[in-house]
Simulated scan of single mutants.
Amino acid sequence: MPSVLIVDDQVLIRSGLSALIRATQDLDVCGEAESGEQAVELAAQRRPDVILMDIRLPGMDGVAATERILATAEPPQPRVLMLTSYDLDDHVYAALRAGASGFLLKDTPPERLFAAIRTVAAGDMLFAPTVTRRLIETYLDRRTPAAPTPAKLSPLTDRELDVLTLIGQGLSNLEIAEKLTISTATVKTHVNRMMSKLDLRSRAQAVAVAYETGLIATAP
C-alpha cells in the first residue's frame, strides 16, 4: 500500500487531503508537514512512497525541499507530486529539474488525486504527453537559449537515445516497448542505464534533459 507524506503550510488543506487519502482502501498517510524543513525531516524518518509537496512554502520552498529529499534519500527514493495553484506556476520547471515526478492543481477532484498518487507511486510521470510538452516548452522558452549539447548525450547508445526521446515525449515504458517493438523489461533496462549514465534521479529530469540538449525541439 503506497504511503503518502502531505506537505502544505495550510492546516485545512493538509487535514482535507489527509482525510481524503485515508478514506481510500489502497493508500495510506504516513505523516503531515507544514514546512520544507519538516518535510525533509519526516521524509527521512517515515520513508514515504509519495510526497504531496506544496510548491510554495515559507522558508525552504517545495522545490528546495524536493531537491534536498531526493539528494539524500536512500533507494527506493520517494516520488514527489507537486501541488500548485496554477498550471503555469513560475516554479514548475525548477521543480521538474529538481526531480519532481509530476504536478497537480490544488482544485483537482479527489478521484484524480488518488489516480495521480497511484501513477507516480508506480514510477510514471503524472501528466500526459501534451501537458508535458506545454510545461517544458513554456519554461525552457523563458530561460536563456543555449546551443544543443550533444556531448552530454555521448555516453548513450543509439537505443538509449531512442528511449530518452520517447520519454521526452511523455511515453510510459509500455508505450515505449510498443513503439520500439521490444519488451517492457528491456525498456526498463535501457531507462535505468540511460539515467545512470546521465546521473538523473527521475523520468521528469530525463524529460528536461531531452529538451535542454536539443534532442527534442522546443518549437516547430
Rank of each mutant, 00 (worst) to 15 (best):
L140G: 07
D141A: 15
R142H: 10
T144L: 11
T144I: 07
T144W: 04
P145E: 06
A147R: 11
A147I: 07
A147G: 06
P148L: 03
P148M: 01
P148A: 00
P148Y: 00
T149A: 15
P150R: 05
P150E: 04
P150S: 03
K152V: 15
L153N: 05
L153M: 04
S154F: 08
P155H: 07
T157V: 08
R159V: 14
R159W: 05
R159I: 11
E160Q: 14
L161S: 07
L161A: 05
D162G: 10
D162S: 14
V163S: 02
L164N: 02
L164S: 00
T165H: 12
T165L: 13
T165D: 10
L166N: 00
I167K: 01
G168N: 05
G168Q: 03
Q169S: 01
L171M: 00
S172N: 00
N173M: 12
L174H: 08
L174W: 06
L174K: 08
E175T: 01
E175F: 04
I176M: 04
A177L: 12
A177Y: 08
E178W: 03
E178T: 10
K179F: 08
K179N: 13
T181S: 14
T181Q: 14
T181V: 13
I182N: 10
I182S: 11
S183Q: 09
S183C: 09
S183T: 15
T184P: 11
T184M: 12
T184I: 09
A185T: 12
T186H: 13
T186Y: 08
V187Y: 06
K188M: 10
H190V: 06
V191C: 02
V191N: 00
N192I: 07
N192M: 12
N192T: 12
R193N: 12
M194D: 00
M194L: 12
M195H: 02
S196Q: 15
K197R: 05
K197D: 01
L198V: 01
L198Q: 01
D199S: 13
D199Q: 13
L200T: 01
R201L: 10
S202A: 03
S202G: 00
R203Y: 09
R203F: 09
R203T: 08
A204S: 15
A204D: 07
A204E: 11
Q205L: 03
A206Q: 02
V207W: 04
V207I: 13
V207P: 05
V209D: 08
A210D: 08
A210T: 05
A210W: 06
Y211P: 13
Y211T: 09
Y211Q: 10
Y211K: 14
Y211R: 14
E212L: 13
T213G: 09
